[in-house]
Amino acid sequence: MDFKIKNLAKIFDGKIIGDKELTISGVSSIENANEGDITFLSNKKYSKYLNDTKASAIVIDKSVSIPKSSKKTFLLVKNSYLTFALLLTEVNKKIGIEKIGIENPNFIHKSSKIQQNIYLGAFSYIGENVEIGNKSKIYPYSYIGNNVKIGGNTIVYPGVKIYDNCIIGDHCNIHANSVIGSDGFGFAPNSKNEYTMIPQIGNVIIEDNVSVGSNTVIDRATLDSTIIKKGTKLDNLIQIAHNVIIGENTVIAAQAGISGSTTIGNNNLIGGQVGIIGHLKMGDNVKFGAASKVIKSIKQNKTVFGYPSMEKNEFLKSYIIFKKLPEIQEKIKKLESLLKIK
């Protein structure tokens, strides 16, 4: 897997400081690298490793100062984090095993249409009228229900369940044991305080370039569609309820839950364990601090924290007071004692 750093400089429009003929033989983190490896620095917390790392080359932002005494080779780029991510993508293609073909045993309904160069793992089930695009991969023990459409270059990892009528776009990754299209949580109470299930007859639409983490569940709509728009990235262990719409290029961290019929805007950043109640609307470019609990709609370009969630500056002011509550309580007790208030 050897490659020249000068070739990387051409690909990523970077500038080399050091040995322009350096050959790279591996990639690693800055603290665990060995001679011949290339690593990166995008977080200033790791600057302490610049002098001590054994890496032969370091991808670094143009804005970062390089130690004058360093004998390392540096590749200066506009965005070192993105550059290294793209580099890892290419490395992964080279070291990965390209799976093509159909393994047995499996079940493929005769009405389904499967394009060329796909991989279908053992013990997978392909229902009626399924369409699977070119170069997609369905790993073992996956279930693809009736009338499901899967685009090209999409990977469905082991144990994934995709229920009837769902649509998955191109270049998507659905990680192990996720469930796409299960029933929404809809029950109607009657006069006896019993609950009657409301049939969920919609579907889930996942657009292009979406990543769904392991053990994430996306419920089908009661009517119409639950929609995950293009470029969105979902972490592991996320619950997306019926009729939710998530905008483009939104990122959601683990253990978040979004209740039914809520709309999330484009380019939102939702931290871990965030909870959003149903029937709300979030604007574009909203940031949600971890564990925030959202009970009202939020306009675009806001940052919110806390429970119930509030705008960042309001939250910080409130938190300062909250930390002083024990002190304030003691002062109140002393005042009550002085005033002889029981």
Rank of each mutant, 00 (worst) to 15 (best):
G151L: 08
F74C: 00
D13E: 14
K10L: 15
L41R: 02
H175A: 08
D164Y: 11
N215I: 00
E314K: 14
V59A: 02
Y143R: 08
F84Q: 01
I102N: 02
N249C: 08
K94H: 12
K71D: 14
G169L: 03
V244I: 13
F3V: 11
A253V: 15
K78R: 10
A254G: 15
I341W: 15
S178Y: 12
S142M: 04
I180V: 13
G231Y: 03
I24Y: 03
L75Q: 07
E314N: 15
T226P: 06
N146I: 07
N285V: 00
I24L: 04
F322K: 11
N32D: 13
S47F: 10
T222G: 02
V160P: 04
N43Q: 00
I328K: 12
K72S: 04
S225Y: 07
K94M: 13
L87S: 04
I270V: 10
F3R: 06
E314C: 04
F187T: 07
A85Y: 10
L50P: 06
S178V: 09
D52A: 12
Y307C: 08
E90P: 00
I276E: 05
I155L: 08
A221R: 00
I144V: 15
F187G: 02
K233N: 01
S259V: 09
I66M: 04
S337Y: 12
E31W: 11
V210S: 02
L223N: 01
I174H: 06
E327V: 13
K281G: 09
N106V: 14
K20D: 14
N147I: 08
G271N: 03
A57E: 07
K331S: 13
I95A: 01
V210P: 07
P308E: 00
E90Q: 14
D219V: 09
K229M: 11
E103M: 05
N153W: 09
N193G: 15
Y143H: 13
V160C: 10
I66W: 06
N267M: 08
I205R: 12
Y195H: 15
D2K: 14
N153P: 09
G181M: 06
I144Y: 02
I246Y: 03
L8V: 12
I270L: 04
G127N: 04
Y319K: 03
N266M: 03
I240F: 10
E330S: 12
I276L: 09
A9H: 01
S56T: 10
A256V: 07
G14I: 07
I66T: 05
I97L: 12
S63E: 11
L8A: 11
L338G: 14
A9F: 07
K287F: 10
E31S: 13
N243F: 06
K93D: 05
K229A: 08
I144N: 01
F40P: 06
Q239W: 07
T226M: 04
E128K: 15
A291E: 10
I341G: 03
S225A: 14
I321D: 08
G202V: 09
S28P: 00
N134I: 15
T154K: 05
Y143D: 00
V59P: 02
H242D: 10
L86W: 06
F305N: 01
K302S: 13
G278P: 05
T39W: 02
K68P: 11
T154I: 01
H242E: 01
S65F: 06
Y319H: 13
K342V: 05
I100N: 05
I58L: 03
K54H: 08
Y125V: 13
E194F: 13
G278V: 06
N7A: 14
N249W: 07
S214D: 05
G96K: 10
